[in-house]
Amino acid sequence: MKARIVIDRELCKECHLCVQVCKKSLIRTTTELNSKGYHPVACMENEDCTGCTLCAISCPEVAIEVYRER
C-alpha cells in the first residue's frame, strides 16, 4: 500500500465532493448514520490510493487525512 486516507465519519456532512473528485473512485457513499444524522462516506480498502490529496483539499469539513509513503 503506497498511501491511505482516514475519514472522520463524525465530521462528514455527505456533500460528496470527495466521491466525485477521486480519480480512482475509491470513496463510496454509505447508509450508516453519524450522530448529526448524515450518511458519512467511506474509503474502500485497496491498494490503489496514490495519496494525491484531492479528496482532502476538496473536503469542506477537513474530515480527511492523507498518509503516504513519503
Binding site: K13, A56, P60, V62, Y67, R68, E69
Partner: peptide, 29 residues
C-alpha cells in the same frame, strides 16, 4: 507512512456549523 494532509494548526478542532458543501468552510481552512 507520513501524514501529508491534515487540519492546519490555526484551525480549531470545533466542527463547522456551516451547511454541507458550503464554501465558507473551505475558505476558513
Amino acid at each position: 507512512m507520513k501524514k501529508v494532509f491534515s487540519r492546519p494548526r490555526s484551525l480549531k478542532s470545533t466542527p463547522f456549523h456551516y451547511c454541507a458543501g458550503c464554501g465558507h468552510s473551505i475558505i476558513h481552512r
